[in-house]
Design a protein around this nucleic acid. Structure first.
Length: 899
DNA sequence: GCGATCAGCT
DNA sequence: CACAGCTGATCGC
């Protein structure tokens, strides 16, 4: 097969052929078999409701290591490696589907487990094949011989290709970074990860170190006993498949043959290791003998040596000393260069940590390398039940390494799409999976496909599956009508000022995926907006995108399209948090007279957008580096420090900031003194200064200045930033009803939300108006209060009030708000965990939505954390808002409104 | 009676 | 604390 060609397989065809061959071979077909054989016109049945998520690849019928769950729902099975906990369900009578695996595993299946080769399809490493319209690649897993990881490219809903990595059992090693195919899986939709040792407490050295230790012990003891012939017996405990490397390395480095029993020898032959005679079945030819796993002692729950057995063996085989090695998965007793040793009389047992699973750091390294959208643990969780608590706990270990923005965005999208989700509702999409009915295959099935081994050779055809990256840049292959249709769709979803060129760019960089294109647009809306301004010099713009509709002009160098096309749209350099200037590190830096110009510049430019960011905007923002927060500091302490650190000396000119400010707003020098005043007030914080400026669009300077100074709102804003809530409240209580044109928030005391539920009016006491998107400040205030609140009942009530306002005024924002509550929260509180439990949020929702606890509990148990929230919000929405059609346009118009 | 599954043990 | 795998009891069709 030429390298450029891709073998194309179809599991249904293979399956039917195998069955035909089977019945030809043994004419009296067992009734059970014919019953289980799918009829020609019945499609595969849907996956069972509670099919383990970690064993099925979304949007396919591919089942990985899930033979015990085999059934009529699939004929495409994958086996990552030959360990019984992964192949349980497979028997010599297996006939429920085609098994795809590595060559080595295929041989083991056929020769050891006696599975019919008709159902086994071996695949080569690193050679993509097309199976059922999906591209599948096997790469080595550095586990036991034959163990592979599976890489899947699955055609997605909008012609976009979804990518999944299933590691099987694996131990990460650096050479994986060199695997060329793997580079196509950066940012995969999910990685199914072997989380066996996903906990920092499991520490073990590299395999090389462990092997080195064993070798050194053998050599040392051999030298010590050099006088006496054949006196010391070395025993190495292994299991059936795995840890062969230890044996090979002992043989190589100690220049010894290794004795194994006949059974082990047969396996080794199948594995193709030790062909050059390193292994022998003759005891007398070696003083290194392989023994079964539990011969030297029981390993669980803790190691208990079996010296009795060792003595038996010693006497049997005529030695005077026995040294055993137990290569256990890990040991807690790893001291510096010392492994645990148990000795008695002339026996010693060395417990050697030798793992064929990744350790904690390696897992994180791999996830960091691939930066997937999700991590799906395959081990250590009860895969049968979707115990989301466990899964979530596991996933926490990878926070910051996964593409969190993508997850959040997807999550929001899923919400707007209703049930159309990728991972959560996998089974609902099974009926629509293409090419997966068995009916038409019978005609296309080639009669010569008697043995699936033969398939491997002959029938390679060009794959219809696109080989290029999902982010395809050519639109050439589409005809004009298609393009126009897509553009129209996009036009409906985007603000009017977006140009056709910009839309084409978006489409191109999103692989023609409209959903993604729109997402990307909102990611980069500021840049696009600037481009539009630069190109058209318009000052008055369409008013259908709320945040950008205000006619303020932005003077900024027109950015060339290429500049940011060449950037990843999530590049940290271009996506600064809108509030990043108050994140602890930066703020301190600024006050230390070491302003980070770059950071300030970009964050200021960022803030040239809306004055009051929306709740939903959070999801547009780059995930902050989680390690950056010190963790224990609260915002309150932080701000306190700031005040101490910024005495009157802060009247220093802020010249750079003023320059920036003027450049951002419109460049007129007449603004200079005004700008300087605001910046002085805001201690040089351009973000706030801009907020203030834009909240007073008519700069009658002196008057404005005075107004600003006395503006309770301004002070309130500052104090929100500074987190001195009591001050703010006092000011707000004194304040009248000064109208602030263009400012979305009403002047409402920050602490109203802490009123008792009876006294709190969700509409009157909210800080924004009906129909408007909810502002962050709503959450920020609530979180401030809740954080300070010790009493659970009070905290619940505060949150409850918060949700009541959201439900009443901006129901669309409920979900983001819940999400923010249960995870990271508003920008002001970036890098802080809200110090409340999910139960309080639940209780608040319960009260706010009028649901009862058991319903929420049920949802929580059946759907998991995110699902629970999404479902809850869906229900809440259906109760409190008129049901909206879940069309794509509806979705985006909703999104547009939110933003 | 048979295969699938599980507890218990190595 | 969860590395693999065997065996015999039990379940269920």
């Amino acid at each position: 097969m030429a390298a450029s060609e891709t073998l194309t397989l179809d599991s249904s065809t293979l399956f039917l052929n195998s069955h035909n061959s089977l019945s030809l071979r043994s004419p009296p077909t067992p009734p059970a078999l014919s019953a289980s054989l799918p009829s020609n016109h019945s499609p595969l049945s849907p996956f069972p409701k509670h099919f383990p998520k970690s064993k099925v690849i979304p949007n396919t019928r591919f089942v990985v290591d899930g033979f015990r769950y085999a059934g009529d729902h699939s004929v495409s099975y994958f086996l990552s490696h030959f360990h019984s906990d992964h192949y349980t369900g497979l028997t010599p009578n297996w006939s429920k589907g085609i098994i795809f695996c590595s060559n080595v595993t295929a041989r083991l299946l056929v020769e050891v487990l006696k599975v019919s080769s008709l159902f086994v399809v071996p695949l080569s490493l690193s050679e993509p094949v097309s199976i059922d319209g999906c591209e599948v690649t096997l790469v080595d897993a550095n586990h036991c011989p034959g163990a592979v990881q599976f890489l899947f490219k699955v055609p997605g809903i909008d012609g976009k290709c979804e990518r999944y990595v299933h590691t099987g059992d694996f131990r990460y090693c650096n050479s994986m970074k060199l695997e060329p195919t793997l580079s196509e899986f950066f940012g995969s939709d999910a990685i199914f990860l072997d989380t066996t040792y996903c906990n920092p407490k499991f520490v073990f050295p590299s395999q090389e170190e462990s092997i080195g230790y064993i070798v050194s012990v053998i050599e040392r003891i051999a030298v010590e006993n050099v006088g006496s012939l054949k006196s010391v017996l070395f025993l190495v405990a292994t299991y059936v498949i795995g840890k062969e490397r230890i044996l090979l390395e002992i043989a190589r480095k100690c220049k010894r043959r290794i004795h194994v029993d006949a059974r082990k020898m047969a396996i080794l032959r199948i594995l193709g290791v030790g062909e050059d005679g390193v292994f022998t079945e003759e005891e007398s030819e070696s003083d290194v003998h392989v023994v079964g796993w539990n011969v030297l002692g029981e390993t669980w729950p803790y190691f208990r040596p079996n010296f009795v057995k060792m003595k038996e063996i010693m006497d049997e085989r005529g030695y005077s000393k026995v040294v055993g090695f137990v290569p256990t998965g890990w040991t807690y007793e790893v001291k510096r260069n010392k492994f645990a040793v148990r000795t008695k009389d002339s026996f010693e047992i060395h417990l050697v940590p030798y793992s064929e699973h990744s350790n904690y750091d390696e897992l994180r390294e791999y996830v960091k390398f691939l930066k997937p959208k999700r991590v799906i643990p395959t081990v250590g969780v009860d895969v049968e039940k979707l115990d989301s608590k466990h899964v979530n706990a596991m996933q926490k270990h990878f926070a910051g390494l996964v593409d969190e923005m993508a997850i959040k965005q997807e999550f929001l999208m899923g919400f707007h799409f209703g049930s159309r989700e990728t991972l959560e509702n996998v089974e609902e999409d099974f009926d629509t999976v293409p090419n997966q009915t068995v009916d038409h295959e019978i005609e296309t099935a080639s009669p010569e496909l008697k043995s699936s081994y033969s398939i491997d050779q002959g029938r390679g055809t060009h794959s219809s599956f696109p080989r290029e990256e999902p982010v395809s840049k050519d639109l050439v292959r589409l005809n004009d009508n298609d393009i126009e249709e897509i553009l129209q769709e996009l036009r409906d979803c985007l603000p009017k000022w977006v140009t056709q060129d910009q839309m084409l760019e978006l489409l191109s960089s999103s692989g023609r995926n409209i959903v993604e294109a729109v997402s990307n647009f909102y990611e980069r809306e500021t840049e696009f907006y600037e481009q539009a301004i630069a190109c058209t010099s318009q000052t008055s713009l369409s008013n259908d995108s709320a945040p950008l509709s205000k006619p303020y002009s932005v003077k900024s160098p027109p950015r060339s399209v290429n500049v940011f096309l060449n950037q990843t749209y999530k590049s940290p350099d271009t996506r600064h948090s809108i509030k990043s200037s108050i994140s602890p590190n930066k703020k301190r830096r600024n006050l230390d007279d070491k302003p980070n110009k770059k950071a300030r510049t970009s964050s200021s430019l960022e803030s040239s957008g809306p004055k009051q960011c929306r709740i939903t905007r959070f999801f547009n923002k780059l995930a902050p580096n989680v390690s950056q927060g010190s963790g224990n500091e609260t915002v309150f302490e932080q701000c306190h420090n700031d005040e101490n650190l910024s005495p009157s000396g802060s009247t220093k000119s802020y010249k750079e900031e003023v320059d920036q400010f003027i450049q951002i707003v419109n460049g007129s020098e007449s603004l200079r003194s005004y700008a300087a005043t605001i910046l002085e007030e805001t201690k040089g914080d351009i973000n706030i200064a801009l907020d203030i400026y834009y909240s007073n669009p008519q700069p009658n300077l002196d008057e404005n200045k005075e107004r600003l100074k006395s503006s309770k709102l301004f002070q309130a804003q500052c104090s929100i930033q500074d987190c001195s809530l009591s001050e703010e409240n006092k000011l707000l209580e004194e304040s009248g009803n000064i109208e602030m044109p263009g400012l979305p928030t009403k002047k409402v005391a920050a602490n109203l939300v802490s009123l008792t539920p009876g006294k709190y009016s969700p509409i009157e006491h909210a800080c924004w108006k009906d129909g408007e998107p909810a502002p962050y400040i709503h959450l920020a205030r609530t979180f401030d209060l809740v954080e300070d609140e010790k009493g659970k009942i009070k905290a619940t009530s505060i949150l409850c009030n918060m949700f009541r306002s959201l439900l009443a005024l901006s129901p669309e924002d409920v979900l983001p708000a819940v999400y923010l509550c249960t995870n990271k929260i508003a920008p002001d509180h970036e890098n802080m965990e809200l110090n409340i439990g999910g139960s309080i949020v639940t209780a608040a929702l319960e009260e706010a939505c009028g649901t009862n606890r058991s319903k929420i509990r049920d949802l929580y148990n059946s759907l998991g954390d995110l699902g629970d929230v999404a479902e809850l919000c869906r229900r809440t929405q259906s109760l409190l808002a008129p049901p909206s059609p879940l069309s794509i346009r509806g979705v985006f118009s909703v999104l547009r409104k939110i933003r």
